[in-house]
Amino acid sequence: MRTLLLINLLIASLFLSSWQKGKPHFKFKFEHSHSLKNIPEPSDIVYDKETGHFFIVSDHGKLFECDTSGNIIRKAQKEGMDFEGVEIKDSFVYVSDESPRKIYKYRKSDLSLLREFNVSWGGAINKAFESITYNYSKNCFVLVSQAPCVVIEYNDDFKEINRYRFHSARDISDARWYNGYIYLLSALDETIFKCDPATYDVIESYKINVFNPEGLAFDNNGNVTITSDDLQKIYFFKNLPHN
């Protein structure tokens, strides 16, 4: 009798199984890649339209400016604990230091530190803000917690304005504004989500063939660049399909 009950429980659980939501619509493969030899554990990347350079941050609390191949041009003196997100707005570079829940504002001109902000996330130490971007349609910064995934909007002084739960991925490792949309990157699902900038609802999703993708950038032509933390590599794609 007991055994029967257990078997029934097992079958019931199988019936409860459902196909996960948000299956990627498109497969998106990189064109080429190479190693980032001198940047340990690269966790995010952003493209600077003015110079055509990349800014890359490392888990080791370091901010680098690099050329289009990922070669280091210069490095910020002020280091942190666990840099996981980077964004450029106007003449400043903003960096998310995940573990201590800090945002650093650097001058882009000389990479000197201008200001620090404290942000709050009560979840796991290393599941906080791995992404930072700016939502130009709402004029606010956007930080997304890695897991559980919550999109949080902040004003320019990093005071919270609003938050949205994001259910379409198991984690989010980066966010990027490009061409009128917010793009979210999931490392665990290896998927890029194109989202409505007002609601963060998923419009399209793109399955990528990169392991442990943590950083997402778009250049002036819409070409996609991804960094992989665990593999310490940079991957170059063309434009997103149907973008």
Binding site: R101, G122, G123, A124, I125, N126, L188
Partner: peptide, 13 residues
């Protein structure tokens, strides 16, 4: 508890 994706512990900072 350090590398567990998706766990929801509580953090004070």
């Amino acid at each position: 508890f350090q590398n567990n994706v998706g766990a929801t512990p509580f953090t004070l900072s």
